[in-house]
């Protein structure tokens, strides 16, 4: 059922059946290290280059999901997947062997939210019984694509974030499971004219604030409706801005807001500056941490909001700002 301007509450429920996540060594050494399905120490993941390594990440996550899930492989109707690389090469090379129809998505670091939203719409609309939503990122391939070659020495500003190496995948299904996707709120592209690609938290915070406000208005609720409101990769700078922006609008999220980018690394000891980022940041935190806490009934209702900074080196060099976007997914623990 359509709610308000940009939200949907699903008439036919959509459930999360199983998850799989894989990360690199640094993430494995972080605060959530013990919760990931697979931690791989080799940053190349046994491949010849960074792009292939990221494809391998997707492949390993998908293999893990297939081994964990009860859904037979031939009953997976679609995969909704994306990454950060040009022309989505991590996705296209990572998923080609599965012989399952794929929708390739680009939402920068918000891709996991976009994939889950579209997957849920597809199932709720009766167009599929089981779909996979997944997203990956790799520190080295992202640095190469958006910044400098890895061996080039430079100093990272305090506002910068560290791209998470990993891949998270969830199996969405029409069959009843403990955690459901109750609804979604789809984000607009919000641009407050920030031109600092090393402060992506500031680029994305207005989009996250816009999405949260829209969700509250559409559903006619406020911040107390959720046990947790969890953004993707705003980092400490973005979180502060988000809380300030929402306070201006009359909402106080200081007690129930969380950010995957802050949770995934130990900023002090791992020198990750403002926090983690990348598609995998929210995707693996969802699988390893958020959904586990929901299954254990620690949280019953969560607004999960992967955030994306729509950065391109071309538009950036041409003097354009970095717009932000966000995709909200309402997760609910069944009674």
């Amino acid at each position: 059922m359509v709610k308000g301007k940009q939200s949907i509450l699903f008439d036919k429920a959509v459930y999360i059946e199983e998850t799989a996540c894989i990360v690199g060594q640094k993430e494995g050494e972080g605060p959530l290290g013990g919760s990931f399905d697979i931690v791989v120490e080799d940053p190349m993941f046994g491949s010849k280059n960074w792009e292939e390594a990221e494809s391998r990440l997707q492949e390993m996550a998908m293999d893990k999901l297939l081994s964990k899930t009860q859904v037979p492989r031939e009953q997976i109707r679609y995969i909704f997947a994306g990454d950060l690389l040009g022309q989505l090469i991590a996705t296209s090379f990572g998923l080609k062997k599965y012989d399952i129809p794929v929708f390739g998505l680009y939402g920068a670091c918000s891709t996991m939210g976009e994939a889950m939203s579209l997957g849920a719409i597809t199932i709720s609309g009766g167009c599929a019984d089981n779909v996979v939503a997944m997203a990956s990122s790799h520190f080295a391939s992202a640095e190469k694509q958006f910044r400098f070659p890895l061996e080039y020495g430079n100093q990272r500003p305090e506002t910068s974030t560290w791209t998470v190496t990993g891949c998270g995948a969830v199996m969405l299904t029409a069959q009843s499971q403990p955690v459901s996707i109750k609804g979604i709120t789809t984000g607009k592209i919000v641009d407050f004219g920030v031109k600092d690609s090393m402060n992506m938290g500031a680029c994305m915070a207005p989009a996250a604030a816009d999405l949260i406000t829209a969700n509250f208005k559409d559903l006619e609720v406020d911040e107390k409706y959720y046990d947790r409101i969890i953004t993707g990769d705003l980092g400490v700078v973005g979180r502060k801005i988000l809380l300030d922006l929402l306070r201006e609008k009359g909402y106080d999220l200081s007690s129930n807001h969380m950010d995957c980018g802050i949770e995934i690394f130990d900023a002090k000891n791992q020198d990750t500056k403002a926090g983690g980022s990348g598609c995998a940041c929210s995707a693996v935190t969802l699988c390893a941490y958020i959904l586990k806490n929901m299954k254990n009934r620690k949280w019953n209702r969560v607004l999960f909001i992967p955030t994306g900074a729509l950065l391109s080196t071309v538009s950036y060099n041409e003097g354009k700002s970095v717009p932000g976007t966000a995709h909200g997914v309402i997760l609910e623990r069944q009674a």
Binding site: Q155, T159, F192, G193, A202, I241, D244
Partner: peptide, 24 residues
């Protein structure tokens, strides 16, 4: 919108942590 963006960028400049120039 321009005014909003200008105010926002000013605000971001205030809240963004900076590395210590002297230490650097």
């Amino acid at each position: 919108e321009q005014q909003r963006n200008r105010q926002y960028n000013e605000y971001v400049k205030q809240v963004a942590p900076k590395a210590s120039c002297l230490a650097n």
